[in-house]
């Protein structure tokens, strides 16, 4: 009997922790000042929040049905793999569009080389400029 109470407490803790992490991530998205800062909240905090909620769901169905199920862990695994890829592509998009950033944002975007913006001809690897 007691271990059901303890498991209920653990599930409730994971649910509230997940909701709090997701809320903090979205708060960062709404509140921070430039795009490169805003990228931090959703990609880290929201991902761990959804992970906590899915762990809570997995524990709940494990307790009620008596056997574990890895279906929920599949969603967690997929989100944990895809979140950095999405963040990388969004950061590349922001750099490509040369979004403004405040002075406190460290790490200046690397200036594109002149060949890459088409101002200078790029030599052919074999023939050179000839």
């Amino acid at each position: 009997m007691t271990h059901f109470v303890i498991l209920e407490g653990v599930i409730a803790f994971f649910l509230i922790a997940g909701g709090a992490f997701a809320f903090i991530g979205s708060l960062g998205l709404a509140h921070l000042r430039d795009f490169y800062m805003r990228l931090h909240g959703p990609t880290k905090s929201t991902t761990i929040g959804i992970g906590c909620i899915l762990i809570a769901s997995m524990l709940y169905f494990w307790v009620t049905e008596g056997k574990p199920d890895i279906q929920e862990m599949l969603i967690t695994l997929f989100l944990f793999i895809t979140a950095p890829v999405t963040a990388h592509l969004l950061a590349k998009t922001g750099l490509h569009l040369r979004l403004p950033h405040v002075d406190k944002t460290r790490g200046r975007p690397v200036e594109l080389r002149r060949e890459e913006v088409g101002e200078k001809p790029v030599p052919h690897p074999d023939k050179g400029h000839g």
Binding site: G18, G19, A22, S26, F35, I50, L90, G94, L97
Partner: peptide, 18 residues
């Protein structure tokens, strides 16, 4: 900007999964 809206949509689908 456009990437801000993209990031907001991306976060919205994660929250809708929750």
């Amino acid at each position: 900007s456009l990437p801000d809206r993209l990031l907001a949509l991306d976060t919205m689908y994660v929250n809708s999964i929750a």
